[in-house]
Write a protein that binds this DNA or RNA. Structure first.
Lengths: 252, 252
DNA sequence: TCTAAACTATGACGTTACGTCAATGTCAAG
DNA sequence: CTTGACATTGACGTAACGTCATAGTTTAGA
């Protein structure tokens, strides 16, 4: 028998980036059946088998179980070209989802800096499809000023990695500085200088109005999530922030 | 004890889109340790625990095992903000990889139409990182005329989905038409009309020179992968294509 | 021709990350 | 008090292989 045009287990495994064990397993469960060299019993994969493995890996990438993959590939009207088109669509959607994950990371960074608040569900945005729908409905309500948010994204996106690192580091120092000014009172020059730095740091993200500044300071008190964040720096910091920001806004 | 600011198992599970069993398991293996209500033994997750779960899900998404995730999160200099930045980078790379998968799908579609050839390794491009490197080195050699390839991608990308479907469908008919003209000979008007349609169909992808036309027809004979493709339509089709294309090119 | 290394096969146990379910305690509302 | 929803622990099962042992086959070099 001529083995021309056929591939043995390891040849295919290497090309496909899977293990020989995987190919054995797929043979065992009937998902990918090779031919056999009758002389020595070796598995021999022809071109259609190779294409079928590609399909398997695509669908596996999309999260289908092997059972589901077999059901798809074995349906009587399975058409490879149509399937490939469908796969392409699915991959594009997957790509969009990753974009949402990136978005979540970016917002988490902001949340950790105390510039915005993220509730628990937002922290997991992008991990499942239905959450994305809920989030979109909710985001419009929560962040009424979506223009500030747009600005935020644009500005942040325009900074270099080094610049970003500096901004984040500076944010930490600011809260510590404001906490250190607490013995002098919210109207003290130390506290006001801290709030001014806080204001400037926010401007890395968006141009806050007075209302937003006050609203943030209020949010630091009214929202238990912020309370937890500030608690770690100083137990009274959120109250102090409100008073200091109020004083600061009177002089804007 | 006040449970204010804490979340029970199902509350967190729902928010995070994981099962309570998962949270049990993560507790069991020490990956995510909640506090406990001393009164009734219920697990209570505070905000830092929630953030840690987010990190776990991110790293899980990136393919790390739970052991590896624990090692990352538990290193003494772990810094959440730095980790988030790293995650963002990893996600962007992942997104690029998906783009490569899309690219592979598109090329597979072309290969099935017989317009280009893909070897076995190309079929699995995008499934692992190292393959991408090999492919890029190899692609330049194989497709010396990378301008035709660039054209191909641009043109294909400019068509609507409906248009693409028509093109692919037409490609199938053309090979069948040429096969039907075989009894009349390679120089017959039927065969020449088929080759002309073939030429036009290729032009959906790129502008083929005479050399490319002849090279493709030769490739159909010299490359066993094309031989397998045409074999399915007609056993002699690849030989016939060569003669018919030679005749066609003499009259261009 | 012989030998050793690389290839192949089958078989079987182990691993990872949960899924499923049973039994039982706790909470909250009617 | 009752019932349904919540929580706990414990344990077996599952999917998709990974790992390794044993033994046959192929290939290349001495």
């Amino acid at each position: 028998m001529s083995t021309e045009g056929y591939y043995t287990v390891n040849q295919l495994a290497e090309s496909a980036g899977v293990s020989a064990r995987t190919l054995h397993y797929y043979d065992q469960i009937g998902l990918l059946r090779p031919q056999r060299n009758p002389h020595n019993g070796y598995r021999l994969y022809d071109r259609p088998a190779v294409l079928r493995l590609q399909q398997i890996l695509f669908l596996r990438e999309l999260g289908l179980s092997l059972d589901e993959i077999q059901a798809v590939l074995d349906q009587p009207d399975f058409d490879l070209l149509t399937a490939l088109e469908q796969h392409r669509q699915a991959l594009l959607e997957r790509q969009a989802r990753l974009g949402r994950l990136v978005h979540t990371v970016e917002r988490t960074i902001l949340a950790l800096k105390g510039n915005i608040a993220m509730d628990n569900k937002e922290l997991f945005e992008g991990f499942s499809e239905e959450q994305q729908k809920e989030y979109e409905a909710e985001a419009e309500q929560r962040w009424g000023s979506s223009e500030a948010f747009q600005q935020s994204r644009q500005r942040w996106g325009s900074y270099s990695d080094e610049k970003k690192r500096q901004i984040l580091e500076e944010g930490r120092e600011i809260y510590l500085e404001i906490a250190a000014a607490m013995p002098y009172g919210p109207a003290s020059p130390q506290a006001q200088a801290g709030v001014a730095r806080w204001h400037q740091n926010l401007r890395y993200f968006y141009e806050p109005t007075k209302e937003i500044l006050l609203g943030l300071a209020d949010g630091y008190n009214d929202d238990p999530r912020f309370a937890a964040f500030f608690e770690r720096i100083h137990p009274e910091l959120n109250q102090f922030m409100r008073l200091a920001v109020q004083h600061y806004c009177e002089k804007l």
